[in-house]
């Protein structure tokens, strides 16, 4: 098998595993409902500004809870077995693609549920979908790599939060801004520049992860 085939195979395996347990899917639905009920009972009315903040908070915590298990769910011995079968980079890239697609789907799902419960304030649907996609990609790349780092230690869930949150702040700042534009909370003619920067951050993080992963996986 070449690397592309290996990647696709691993991607398929990850999806099958998720579909059997539906751990992330049910988790995100719980997040969305719990957040909405809490905020709704406290505020009684969810303004577009609050909606924008809520949405990205939900996505952030969904990303953490979904991605933290990327490298932790399998034992060290089984990891070693995978590395003997496939190229290590194929494993990393497959995890990143899987996490991106999972997070993208989860975001669309939580958007749907949020819109159902509070109404849909999104005016520019195309821009918002683009923000969700680029955001899922950025969060998935950063958190997958951080989870690969923290999986090497005990108590990796806490470590991942400590390492990961500061790193993804730039992505979140840009996402909130694009989100506010898509909700017409602000009008920025230079929003194309923000999108390009988001794409650039994603690509830089991706290439650094690929460069550094060979030093990380062996033990």
């Amino acid at each position: 098998m070449n690397m592309l085939q290996q990647t696709l195979r691993l991607l398929w395996r990850d999806w099958v595993l998720e579909w059997r347990t539906r751990y992330a899917l049910s988790g995100i639905l719980l997040y969305v409902f719990a957040t909405i009920v809490l905020v709704y009972s406290a505020l009684l009315d969810i303004q577009p500004q609050v909606w924008n903040a809520l949405f990205w908070v939900i996505i952030l915590f969904a990303a953490v809870s979904a991605i933290v298990k990327s490298f932790v769910q399998e034992s060290q011995q089984r990891q070693l077995y995978y590395y003997s079968l496939v190229h290590p980079l194929a494993l990393l890239v497959a995890k990143m693609i899987y996490n991106t697609s999972l997070l993208f789907l989860l975001s669309l799902l939580s958007w749907l549920v949020l819109a159902f419960l509070t109404g849909n304030p999104v005016k520019d649907t195309g821009l918002f979908v683009l923000a969700i996609f680029l955001g899922s990609m950025g969060l998935a790349i950063a958190f997958t790599f951080i989870s690969a780092i923290s999986a090497k230690a005990q108590n990796s869930a806490t470590l991942m939060a400590v390492l990961g949150f500061p790193v993804i702040i730039p992505i979140l700042l840009i996402l909130v801004k694009i989100g506010a534009n898509a909700l017409r909370l602000m009008q920025d003619t230079a929003i194309g520049g923000d999108i390009i920067i988001l794409v650039a951050i994603n690509l830089i993080l991706l290439s650094v992860s690929i460069l550094l992963y060979p030093f990380l996986w062996r033990d």
Binding site: I149, V167, V208, F215, L216
Partner: peptide, 21 residues
């Protein structure tokens, strides 16, 4: 080894934070 990997990764994530945003 692992802290060296994180240091490089964090520095790269820092560049947009300090110079672009």
């Amino acid at each position: 080894r692992i802290s060296a990997v994180y240091n490089i990764f964090a520095f790269v994530a820092l560049i947009p934070l300090i110079y672009v945003l």
